[in-house]
Computed example of a mutant assay.
Amino acid sequence: MPQVFALMLAGAGLYAGYKWVSRLLAEAEEGARKREADLREAVARRGRDAPKDLGTLERDPQTGVYRPRTKSF
């Protein structure tokens, strides 16, 4: 009889653990979906503001930074 009690106790523990893990995974999935929606919204918003065309870039040898080519007239 004690084996049945131990088996019932182990089953209840496994069930509680299963419910806990499934709740954690559901919360993580919900958070990921929310972050994905926020990211999609940010990308869509950024699409309206097209980046400015700087033309040809050339590397500044002193700083190593690329800057727009200066027009010499």
Rank of each mutant, 00 (worst) to 15 (best):
M1C: 09
M1S: 14
P2C: 04
P2E: 10
P2K: 11
P2D: 09
Q3A: 14
V4W: 06
F5E: 14
F5I: 15
F5P: 05
F5M: 11
L7W: 03
L7G: 07
M8C: 11
L9I: 10
L9P: 06
L9K: 15
L9M: 03
L9D: 10
L9W: 07
A10D: 03
A10Q: 14
A10Y: 10
G11E: 10
G11T: 09
G11M: 11
G11D: 05
A12R: 05
A12W: 01
A12T: 07
G13Y: 01
G13C: 08
G13A: 04
L14W: 10
L14V: 06
L14Y: 05
L14A: 10
Y15Q: 04
Y15L: 12
Y15D: 06
A16Y: 00
A16M: 07
A16L: 09
A16V: 02
G17Q: 05
G17E: 09
Y18I: 00
Y18G: 13
K19R: 13
K19F: 08
W20S: 05
W20A: 10
V21R: 13
V21T: 11
S22T: 14
S22P: 03
S22K: 10
S22F: 07
R23F: 05
R23W: 04
R23C: 05
L24Y: 00
L25K: 06
L25D: 06
A26I: 06
E27C: 00
E27F: 04
E27H: 07
E27I: 07
A28V: 02
E29G: 09
E30F: 03
E30R: 14
R33P: 01
R33M: 08
R33W: 03
R35M: 05
R35V: 05
R35I: 03
E36K: 13
E36T: 13
E36F: 10
E36G: 01
E36L: 14
A37N: 03
A37D: 06
A37Y: 06
D38A: 11
D38W: 10
L39H: 06
R40K: 13
E41I: 08
E41Y: 07
V43L: 12
V43G: 05
A44G: 15
A44V: 04
A44F: 07
R45G: 11
R45L: 12
R46Q: 12
G47L: 13
D49N: 13
D49Y: 08
D49I: 13
P51E: 00
K52H: 12
K52T: 15
K52W: 03
D53V: 05
L54C: 04
L54I: 05
L54H: 11
G55R: 03
G55M: 00
G55Y: 04
T56D: 12
L57P: 08
E58D: 06
R59Y: 00
R59H: 04
R59C: 08
R59E: 15
D60R: 01
P61Y: 01
P61F: 03
P61I: 02
P61D: 02
Q62E: 15
T63I: 03
T63D: 08
G64H: 00
Y66M: 12
Y66R: 09
Y66F: 14
Y66S: 14
P68F: 01
P68C: 09
P68E: 07
R69G: 09
R69H: 08
R69L: 14
K71Y: 10
K71L: 12
S72T: 12
F73V: 00
F73G: 00
F73I: 00
